[in-house]
């Protein structure tokens, strides 16, 4: 790079985004050339002002963030206790099923179907309870949402085109 050559517009943008991304020669030119440095500073200043003005446009928040207090006080149940609860629930279910015939008023096919429904409901409740306590395996504990502005959005654009952000 010659001494009198100024940096390009692309370099000026890069100087604002990531000065370290410029070659040492271009960085040296920016440090020495008042015109180029001013131009880069002006662009940086415009972008900073955009952020400041945007901040001023936002109305003040009028609500307070509410968190479920009960949850903060309640310690997580140890695994042993969870297992004990699950076992107790399963044992109660088995007892209920085994004693059902003694309470049977009329051993008809309808009653049998009812028992099957109850059994199925009880199994479902156990499954729901298990999933509510531990929806993911332990190894996934640190998992958080994937940024999904790609394919899913394209899919949604397909089925629901039209206005979106800043609408």
């Amino acid at each position: 790079m010659k001494k009198d050559d100024h940096v390009t517009q692309e370099d000026l943008i890069m100087a604002v985004i990531d000065k370290g991304g410029l070659t040492p020669e271009k960085q040296a030119h920016l440090a020495a050339c008042q015109a180029c440095r001013s131009e880069a500073e002006r662009l940086g200043c415009d972008l900073a002002s955009l952020g400041d003005l945007a901040k001023a446009v936002v109305p003040p928040m009028q609500t307070t963030i509410m968190l479920p207090e009960a949850k903060t006080l309640k310690p997580a149940r140890p695994w042993g206790l969870r297992l004990a609860y699950g076992s107790a629930l399963a044992a109660a279910l088995v007892v209920l099923i085994l004693t059902m015939p003694f309470f049977r008023v009329s051993p008809s096919g309808k009653m049998e179907a009812l028992y099957q429904d109850m059994l199925s409901d009880a199994r479902l409740m156990i499954e729901i309870d298990r999933m509510a306590k531990n929806p993911l395996p332990e190894s996934w504990a640190a998992f958080d949402d994937e940024f999904d502005a790609g394919e899913d959005d394209d899919f949604m654009d397909g089925i629901a085109p039209g206005g979106e952000d800043f609408s």
Binding site: A149, D153, M156, A160, E164
Partner: peptide, 11 residues
């Protein structure tokens, strides 16, 4: 992003 998807769907 979820919010925008919901809005799009409801539209």
């Amino acid at each position: 992003n979820d919010h925008h998807r919901r809005k799009k769907f409801l539209s």
